[in-house]
Design a protein around this nucleic acid. Structure first.
Lengths: 258, 258
DNA sequence: GAAGCAGGATTGGATATCAATTTATTTGGA
DNA sequence: TCCAAATAAATTGATATCCAATCCTGCTTC
């Protein structure tokens, strides 16, 4: 279960998905070893795990970097997510697990409530959760893990491309999707899901300037207790960040070194 | 070209997929290090890669073993393959790449020819290739790699459960599938694909006695002529889950040994 | 025969060291 | 000054050796 390299990989993963480490950032073995108070070998093992997961790229004799997917690859990730979930919908027809649609409906209600309060961040999280729930309906752990991996790669994209979502429409489409499930119109549901992900993908725009990630030690050591220690605001990203933070709550806790 | 651990992982992977290493076989670090003439650390890194890929399980303080999926997990792997390819079919509708169906047709012809010559092994390989080609139609590398990983896990199952495929029917279904593509009957095609994979899964039977894998050094140094067919065919086989076996009729029984 | 203990074997990890390669710096020249 | 070659520094890939923790085995003891 434990295993130092596994924990460290998880911590680095959180830092990447939390956008505290930006794509392209160098992940030096020595630096990480010093930060985590561990030997280089453990770091290498953690980096190998992350590379197998697609979050890190290792270039021989050059080191490891946070993955920096091209726009083409980003599109492929979303298309793959689309296809996987379309496959789930196709299977839904074979399984009379319709009782579980109540979970999807409950999620939609939660998202609506969040939107009603203007909490777009929370609404966004519920929006992601909807797709998790959809996949969970299959009760297929292999698929669920696969989907989770794809979602990690998608979250990585958020820090590379600026995103701008119309949560209201996304939520409406979720509702429409469930209605189609209810009527067992699977082909239409698949078509809608495809359009849904295209809408999501349209929310991503190329960022003309990549904000460099903060120094490594700041990415892992929880910032000062009182100071949020946000990145040096310089580009439009700061504006976007503010827009997504109506209530200013962005607590991502990190397991420091043990 | 890259690191030593990557090559070694590939070699071990081949040995597993070639059924020279059976599920449950112990992969001792010291033994492998001696065989490959590298340090234990390189072996550990290779084992980590394989574990991330799902072909090896690492138990803390106990060591690494060739993965030994449960029947439930085996079913999940096939269901996941089904869903991924159903998703591909759903996408096929959006892309007018129908010209590429010729590749599928060519594959079917090759398989038919192999069947005509009674070369069931070759026919089996073409049968697998069909699904690769189907996925390749998307030109989506993320999906293709994901599908390849699932296929590796499926091939691992072949050495755990005895398999008996009716290649004639499988080939017929491929042909029927392409015909449905041609008529753009995607929903029907998805349904057929589901039945197709259920037929494949029915070909797997529980082997009550696992043949132990040969010693490690023999698995990697294939000094002997290519004669790994050392199976004691005298074991009773139990019927796989009833869910996947509504009717147990099969005309062409082939030992699926790749 | 069952419980429990000691010892061996194996894994997980640390440290020190070295070669190969990349990156940075300095020097040299036009 | 600016570009290019040569050299120095830093980083990675890998090895060997060592040590602690854990697991397995076999033996002893009751």
């Amino acid at each position: 279960m434990s295993g130092r390299s596994e924990q460290i990989a998880a911590t680095i993963c959180e830092a990447i998905l939390g956008h505290r480490l930006k794509p392209g950032a160098k992940l030096g073995e020595r630096d990480l070893a010093d930060i985590f108070r561990v030997s280089r070998i453990v770091i290498r093992q953690a980096l190998i795990r992350l590379a197998e997961d697609g979050l890190v790229t290792v270039e021989r004799n050059r080191g490891a970097f946070v993955a920096k997917p091209s726009l083409a690859e980003a599109i492929e990730v979303f298309e793959t997510l689309t296809m996987v979930e379309q496959g789930v919908i196709a299977q839904l027809g074979n399984r009379p697990r319709m009782s579980l649609l109540t979970e999807l409906r409950a999620n939609i209600e939660r998202q609506k409530a969040a939107l009603g309060q203007g909490n777009e961040q929370l609404a966004g999280e519920f929006g992601l959760e909807f797709h998790d729930l959809l996949v969970s309906l299959t009760r297929n752990r292999v698929l669920i893990e696969l989907h989770a991996q794809l979602k990690r790669r998608a979250r990585l994209l958020e820090s590379l491309y600026r995103c701008d979502f119309d949560h209201c429409q996304l939520c409406d489409e979720h509702e429409h999707l469930v209605a189609l499930f209810d009527r067992r119109q699977w082909a239409k549901a698949q078509q809608l899901l495809d359009e849904h992900y295209r809408l999501v993908a349209r929310g991503y725009r190329i960022e003309d300037e990549i904000v460099p990630s903060q120094p490594l030690h700041l990415a892992f050591n929880p910032p000062a207790p009182e100071k949020p220690a946000e990145e040096s605001a310089g580009s439009k990203t700061a504006v976007i960040a503010a827009r997504y933070r109506p209530n200013g709550k962005s607590s991502h806790r990190i397991k420091g070194d043990a």
